Amino acid sequence: MKTRITELLGIRYPIVQGGMMWVGRAELAAAVSNAGALGTITALTQPTPEALCNEIGRVRSMTDQPFAVNLTILPTIKPVPYDEYVQAVVESGVKIVETAGRNPEPYMPSFKAAGIQVIHKCTSVRHALKAEALGCDAVSVDGFECAGHPGEDDVPNLILLPAAAAKLRIPMIASGGIADARGMVAALALGADGINMGTRFMATREAPIHENVKRKLVEHDERNTALIFRTLNNTSRIFRNSVAERVLELEHKEGATFADLKPLVSGERGKRMYETGDTEDGTFPAGLAIGLIEDIPTCAELVNRMIAEARALVHGRLTALVDES
């Protein structure tokens, strides 16, 4: 299956695993890459730049296929030495980086000098065009359906993808609400060159999180996410549990500040939840794609199934629509 994304990144299938805090580790990234897609490790999951170098080495010990490193540049409770993380990526010889959050411009010279392909995550057409102007090689366009931070424009992919495709020259990856072959085919039809899946890859055998979290994704539907931080203009889509409900209550009834919410949404609580399986102990990102997750396959089973079903869909149902014989 050949698209501009497969050719740019050197992968067999136009599927990218999203960079997810505490989830994007070597085990998952290597399994995704070995399946013919693009695995991604999350830089800030590692406590130090040195630990990131070690994690990159672990991925290389598990796969000889391309993989990426995600670097999310956002305000954090604890200051992050972003320059040092960038240097660790460059010195490790990684050739694909996904940036997200703030403008990646300060780090572009280092990435480009090292021959690194840069994909920047965007939630609007204007941000995607800015990334293109900065020299990014591709963009990952996140619709309102996505987990994590979908921006403040609230535009779903049915509109956002063709709007972006009409103006971009560089390849575009569709992110948000995609969990199966139908979503992949639809995204490609809307102008994308590939797809990004985060929530769906959480519910795989190799995802390094507790089985209780994976089962929650299988058991619940598209109504079971919550949009927190709306009052702070920093919207985040997460799984709707008792902690999420409490955050919403504090925001909308009591006008809470981030300082008030911090004890509930801290990353350490989320990390602990992934480890212990107590899904009421913290918050975790989840997109509307949970409405399409019905099992917990291996990454290879998931990718192979999606490719087979996508081909069957294109050559079956869609071909029949235009068959004039």
Rank of each mutant, 00 (worst) to 15 (best):
residue 145 E to K: 11
residue 229 F to D: 02
residue 187 A to L: 14
residue 191 G to Y: 12
residue 5 I to V: 12
residue 163 A to G: 09
residue 175 S to W: 02
residue 53 C to W: 00
residue 176 G to Q: 01
residue 225 T to G: 00
residue 280 E to V: 12
residue 1 M to P: 11
residue 40 T to H: 02
residue 196 N to A: 14
residue 46 Q to G: 02
residue 145 E to D: 10
residue 4 R to C: 08
residue 311 R to L: 09
residue 173 I to H: 03
residue 277 G to Q: 14
residue 114 A to I: 00
residue 39 G to P: 13
residue 286 A to R: 13
residue 23 V to Q: 15
residue 226 A to I: 01
residue 117 Q to G: 03
residue 89 V to I: 15
residue 25 R to P: 00
residue 108 M to K: 15
residue 248 L to Q: 07
residue 49 P to M: 09
residue 182 R to Q: 10
residue 38 L to K: 02
residue 196 N to T: 15
residue 34 N to D: 13
residue 29 A to D: 01
residue 295 D to G: 09
residue 194 G to S: 13
residue 21 M to P: 12
residue 103 N to H: 04
residue 47 P to D: 05
residue 248 L to A: 12
residue 220 H to W: 06
residue 278 D to Y: 02
residue 241 N to L: 14
residue 137 D to M: 11
residue 51 A to P: 10
residue 142 D to Y: 06
residue 213 V to Y: 13
residue 302 L to M: 15
residue 203 A to W: 11
residue 107 Y to H: 14
residue 104 P to K: 03
residue 121 K to H: 09
residue 237 R to N: 01
residue 141 V to W: 01
residue 169 R to A: 07
residue 298 T to A: 02
residue 186 A to C: 13
residue 312 A to K: 04
residue 5 I to E: 00
residue 238 I to F: 04
residue 122 C to A: 12
residue 263 P to Q: 10
residue 47 P to N: 06
residue 323 D to W: 06
residue 305 R to W: 11
residue 196 N to Q: 15
residue 34 N to Q: 10
residue 144 F to T: 03
residue 38 L to S: 01
residue 289 A to P: 07
residue 44 L to P: 07
residue 46 Q to T: 14
residue 68 A to V: 10
residue 49 P to H: 12
residue 51 A to F: 03
residue 79 P to L: 07
residue 210 H to R: 02
residue 6 T to W: 03
residue 244 A to E: 00
residue 139 V to I: 11
residue 205 R to L: 09
residue 2 K to I: 11
residue 269 R to A: 05
residue 195 I to V: 15
residue 307 I to E: 05
residue 51 A to K: 15
residue 79 P to T: 11
residue 189 A to H: 12
residue 80 V to G: 01
residue 123 T to N: 15
residue 120 H to K: 07
residue 158 L to Q: 12
residue 55 E to L: 08
residue 199 T to D: 01
residue 35 A to C: 10
residue 297 P to D: 06
residue 276 T to D: 03
residue 324 E to F: 12
residue 252 H to F: 12
residue 129 L to K: 13
residue 122 C to R: 09
residue 263 P to S: 13
residue 139 V to C: 02
residue 323 D to Y: 04
residue 220 H to I: 06
residue 80 V to D: 02
residue 262 K to D: 07
residue 146 C to Q: 05
residue 99 T to A: 09
residue 4 R to G: 08
residue 76 T to M: 11
residue 317 R to F: 06
residue 170 I to S: 07
residue 260 D to S: 08
residue 315 H to E: 15
